[in-house]
Design a protein around this nucleic acid. Structure first.
Lengths: 238, 238
DNA sequence: ACCTGAACACCGTTCAAGT
DNA sequence: ACCTGAACACCGTTCAAGT
């Protein structure tokens, strides 16, 4: 009868009820703060004012959370505007043969890939999590955009697929390399120490030392430069 | 006095004494067998017939083991033979201006990068561990080789550095993407399921479905194709 | 349908102690 | 100098139980 008074009241979950979306948003927050090591199912639940294992009702496994978080941040990548929004579906026909449209696809590709790279650098942990198939809707939508832009350049299989993979892989590799210096634990020093380590071995690595391989440089410019190489090489085939 | 008989004899460590080299070799074995999740300090010690925490005498942290294992497998990457082995040090002078040497550097670059990719695919776990600065001697030696080959093409800073990063990042991205399908837990099915998932959404991803984006293809040929694009674009600048 | 804590089988790492 | 096990502070995940 008096049981009500003795039993502790429900801890009164603060926010709205749990949902996949809230879980993913919180996971991204934790990852942004503490990197891959900062994401823990227990911490994630705590961050959401939930019991330590409640998440498993909404999500099968931690890997699910990671996959969702990864795809989530690719949703930030803006698709460059396109003039002609219709005509999309009958993709088989209607390839433009006029050379004037050449710059168009290239601008679209560059815009997409720069945005792609920027999103990854805003969330450096993403680079460490790429070792899983990326099949989420945000990634697929952007890959679709990339390949359809490349097709407008006149490329056809198998070159079209090779170009798609080449560009995507270039972006991924660039983000991985650059993000590798942004470990959330260490503040700034690792690069400086690495530079000295290299400089001390000029006899072994004369070219790298000579060109200042580990020196700071404008990484976006470097990225654009490599992208130019790739697109120039592609343009040869169209 | 009789203590000797009562005390258990030293477990008689089987192999030779522990050493960094033996630890790294064992770590690579474990990684090859079970992927990133297969490497555990405890399992590693057991694999070496050592106490569960003995490793910490030879190595400061698990990250150290990973860094060493990663650099170790890049030691497998053969440096393509070069005709002129001397003349290396005065790298400032002596750039060849004759166009005939053009194919030479390109062959060297292609050979190195194909070997680089092959080593990573022999050890697919490497792709998941790239989110750390690669400063080991094996990696640096091969990066030095890459950049010195590129320099022979006539490139100078800042294009030389951009080209070095572009090529390295392309290899890394390609390996990450391809290795992402080789999770050690699941056998073969993920790709097949992904294909069906994509095919069921032809309205969303018309181009990807049309080109069979997730179909099996000859990945080495695809890699070579992308490399050709990149090197063709580079050759424009030399 | 949704949430909970206890419990299990693990982790990486520290440390006092052994030889 | 090299090796050891106990111990600490964590993990991801399962599950019977609650509402």
């Amino acid at each position: 009868m008096t049981g009500v008074w003795l039993r502790p009241q429900r801890p009164s979950r603060s926010g709205p009820p749990l949902s996949r979306d809230r879980i993913v948003a919180a996971a991204v927050e934790l990852l942004d703060q503490g990197g891959v090591g900062g994401l823990t199912m227990r911490r994630l639940a705590e961050h959401l004012d939930a019991g330590s294992t409640t998440l498993y009702w909404h999500v099968a496994t931690k890997d699910d959370v990671v996959d969702l978080a990864l795809d989530h941040i690719f949703g930030e990548v803006q698709l460059p505007d396109r003039r002609d929004d219709e005509a999309g579906l009958d993709s088989e026909a209607g390839l433009d043969d006029e050379a004037g449209a050449g710059r168009d696809w290239r601008v679209d590709v560059e815009g997409l890939l720069l945005g792609w790279r920027a999103a990854m650098l805003r969330h450096p942990w993403s680079a460490a999590l790429l070792g899983r198939p990326m099949l989420g809707p945000n990634v697929l939508t952007r890959t679709e955009f990339l390949q359809s832009a490349l097709r407008r350049s006149g490329l056809v299989e198998p070159d079209l697929g090779a170009a798609t993979y080449a560009l995507a892989n270039y972006v991924i590799g660039s983000a991985v390399t650059l993000a590798s210096w942004q470990r959330p634990d260490s503040p700034q020093p690792p690069r400086e120490a690495a530079r000295e380590h290299l400089a001390a071995q000029q006899d072994r690595y004369p070219t790298l030392v000579d060109t200042g391989h580990l020196d700071d440089r404008d990484w976006e410019v470097t990225f654009r430069q490599g992208l130019t190489y790739l697109l120039d090489g592609l343009a040869t085939r169209t």
